[in-house]
Design a protein around this nucleic acid. Structure first.
Lengths: 192, 192
DNA sequence: TTGCTCATGTAACACGTTACATGATTGT
DNA sequence: ACAATCATGTAACGTGTTACATGAGCAA
């Protein structure tokens, strides 16, 4: 259900077409909720069928026409209800490929496991760099719609800061963990 | 694809029926890779169709018969290949419901957001307790098949320890993060 | 000339969730 | 008496991924 609300959220003040929504996803929400174009198109149709969105065609010369979506009153109400009624439990992502591999890791060469730990660390460092890059981008172009704002005292920015902080802490946790595990594996104490 | 390997992994040395596999999932792998019974049954059929598993019926009196699955040579080879050929990137879970809500949190009452942060903390504490409970269980019944082993020098146990450590660190990270955010929200400095 | 951006979509597939049906046995 | 456990499955649905089709304009 959440993708619906992500779209209603982005469309609560502006009209946008599917393609533009995908761009916005990739530079902002994708960090917490990625979505493919085909999925966005499908969901937009569903939202229109349910009366939460309306669309119209914007003609263009020399490039394809756009189907612009805008929120209806019902759509805004729907979003507001979702925001005001938090669930009893949050759905948290599980299913980490590497941890499953590690679960069966004892059935293979420890050198392979070490290599995988290094890969995990590298990926965490990459995601740190990505967060950093997107923060800089936001500082340079503070006006871009729906990009992370940069204004310390604005509520919107505060929450974005929290989200970025969370990403940083998660990546740092992974790096610390992998380092610790690698250290133990490399000291090779009594492996059977 | 990963569920296939989880099943092949559990069946690499023993024969088990679907129901028993579900029980094992719930007390061990579920932490990193949960699965529903219906999904397990579906996947077992697929694995048999692909020649990685074989099954036979074990008759029972006074209770339903069991369909026992065991790995074929091809199945063991398939698992081994998966273990020995790590992917170029690991698929990491994204899509955190709470973070998406937070992204649009500025459109609602800050008191609701605070309440949600407290819920996030409570859930993280619960998962710490769950990890602790499963560790104690493993210490008391070290012989249960496929439960976390408790033998400091055994490779299997070492990897299980790494996995548990990871769960603990993740939960502690979330608690620290939520505490920090709540502190800032409660000091109420200059909210627009 | 090869490939990217803009733009919309379709189709098939993969994977995960929820609900339902059946039925004996055992524990509270 | 009611619920849980053991046991297998079907069906439908929801959600996410991948591949394909079309076609103009533009930059390396």
């Amino acid at each position: 259900m959440s993708l619906r609300y992500a779209l209603l959220g982005l469309l609560r003040k502006t009209s946008l077409n599917g393609y533009a929504l995908k761009t916005i996803f990739d530079e902002s929400i994708a960090f917490v909720w990625p979505a493919e174009l085909s999925q966005i198109y499908r969901e937009l149709e569903g939202l229109e069928k349910d009366g939460f969105l309306e669309s119209s065609i914007e003609m263009q010369e020399n490039r394809p026409n756009k189907r612009l979506y805008r929120s209806t009153e019902a759509g805004r109400r729907h979003l507001q209800e979702w925001l005001e009624a938090p669930p009893e439990r949050f759905s948290a992502p599980k299913r980490e490929e590497f941890l499953l591999r590690l679960f069966f890791g004892s059935a293979t060469d420890p050198e392979i496991v070490k290599k995988e730990f290094r890969l995990v660390m590298a990926q965490a460092r990459e995601s740190l760099a990505a967060i950093d890059a997107s923060t800089r981008l936001a500082e340079r172009f503070p006006d871009r719609p729906y990009m992370v704002q940069v204004d310390r005292f604005c509520r919107e920015d505060r929450y974005n800061r929290f989200i970025r902080k969370r990403g940083i802490m998660a990546a740092e946790m992974v790096i610390a963990w992998a380092e610790e595990c690698l250290a133990e594996l490399e000291s090779q104490a009594d492996v059977r």
